[in-house]
Amino acid sequence: MNTVPENLRYTRDHEWLSGEDEPAVGITAFAGEALGDIVYLELPPVGTVVTAGDPCGEVESTKSVSELYAPADGEIVAVNPAVAEDPSLVNADPYGQGWLFRLRLTGTPELLDAAEYAALIGAEASR
């Protein structure tokens, strides 16, 4: 039920990055399912310089609030206005309309490929 698209790269914090030069960043279906219905997102404004692993926003669901960590070093170059307006897009379409922001990378991030991420969530799901 938790598909892991082959064309994306992933972090251990359950974020995905697209393959473009300025990748889109989102939350994986696995994380969205674990969080429950997402009702509010606090996203870093355009121009924010972020450091991999540092908190850069918040994801609030009915039952919990989680920090959003920057998946890589870089600068925020776009924020998805649709998802800010309707955070349920993260649950409904995590790899499409539910993207959060675009990042101009400064450096080469260490990311997981789809197989590695699938193994990670397989391990978490079976815990």
Binding site: D13, I27, F30, A31, G32, K63, S66, E67
Partner: peptide, 13 residues
Amino acid sequence: MSAVASSTAHACP
């Protein structure tokens, strides 16, 4: 994102 690992509120109602 620390969705699965860390939540600052109770996951249980």
